[in-house]
Design a protein around this nucleic acid. Structure first.
Length: 116
DNA sequence: AGCTTGACTTTGA
DNA sequence: GTCAAAGCCAAGC
């Protein structure tokens, strides 16, 4: 019989998407936080790479995922660079110079909220 | 098959 | 505090 891969071993991308979709409105998180929650802290880049493929998942609020500094590093990957900031402001967040104000206050840690 | 790039993070100077 | 370099894994060429 064919040993199908376990659900827990599903694609890393799917895991990232699952976490990102759980990000509540008005909250933001970092690539590293997601990677850490998934257990691959070192592979924070993979989270970003996963987001690069988020075009396959229109329901992914990728605008709520920023780098460790709260900087909108991936804004240019959106339909329009302004779209990401506009969505964040729509969520009640303040963005200045492509950076989220009080980022740490709005930081949403999946390890804290989702409880491993 | 190997090298380069990438929506990052951490560490050292 | 900033700046530079290393580490990381995967996809693209």
């Amino acid at each position: 019989m064919i040993s199908r891969i376990s659900d827990a071993s599903k694609d890393f991308f799917e895991q990232v998407y699952a976490v990102v979709k759980e990000i509540p409105e008005g909250r933001v998180t970092s690539y590293g936080a997601i990677a850490n929650y998934l257990g691959t802290k070192k592979s924070s880049r993979m989270v970003g790479w996963a987001m690069n493929a988020c075009h396959s998942r229109p329901e992914i609020p990728a605008h709520r995922v920023v780098n460790r500094n709260g900087l909108l590093t991936g804004k240019m990957h959106f339909s329009s660079p302004e779209d990401m900031q506009k969505r964040l402001e729509k969520d009640g967040l303040k963005v200045v110079a492509d950076q989220i104000i009080d980022f740490k206050l709005h930081f949403w840690d999946p390890e804290e909220e989702l409880k491993i």
